[in-house]
Simulated scan of single mutants.
Amino acid sequence: MPIMCSVQLPEGKTQEQIEKALADVASVLMKDFCAEANQVRVMIDELPRNRYIAGGVMAYDMPDFNGKGE
């Protein structure tokens, strides 16, 4: 039976960052659950900044999520 994992994050990450995160998460799942590579599915959903809110603030108004607070 496959092991499935979904990660949600703000849009705007580079392709390299996404690929590394996918590989890292898959590696941990394989190690921790003694699973083969073909048993693990990892998916990243990038969320547009106008589609979610945290603490009453839209994501596009959050400096830390827009790279302005880094």
Rank of each mutant, 00 (worst) to 15 (best):
M1R: 05
M1Q: 02
M1H: 04
P2K: 03
I3E: 01
I3G: 02
I3Q: 02
M4A: 12
C5E: 08
C5D: 00
S6G: 09
S6A: 10
Q8P: 01
L9F: 02
L9T: 04
L9R: 08
P10I: 10
G12Y: 07
G12L: 06
K13R: 14
K13P: 00
K13S: 03
K13W: 04
T14S: 15
Q15G: 11
Q15I: 05
E16R: 09
Q17C: 03
I18H: 07
I18Y: 03
I18L: 13
E19N: 15
K20M: 08
A21H: 03
L22N: 05
A23R: 09
A23K: 09
A26I: 00
A26F: 00
S27A: 15
V28Y: 00
V28S: 14
L29I: 12
M30F: 02
M30D: 03
K31E: 10
D32L: 10
F33L: 12
F33E: 00
F33D: 01
C34G: 14
C34R: 14
A35P: 06
A35C: 02
A37L: 01
A37K: 13
N38M: 04
N38R: 05
N38Q: 12
Q39C: 10
Q39E: 12
Q39Y: 06
Q39W: 11
V40T: 00
V40K: 00
R41L: 11
R41S: 08
R41F: 07
M43K: 02
I44N: 04
E46T: 10
R51L: 05
R51N: 11
I53E: 08
I53V: 13
A54G: 03
G55S: 10
G56C: 08
G56N: 11
V57Q: 09
V57I: 13
V57E: 13
V57M: 05
A59V: 03
A59Y: 10
D61K: 12
D61L: 09
M62Q: 14
P63F: 05
P63D: 13
D64G: 12
F65Y: 15
F65C: 10
N66R: 13
G67I: 06
G67L: 08
G67P: 09
K68R: 14
G69M: 15
E70I: 14
E70W: 13
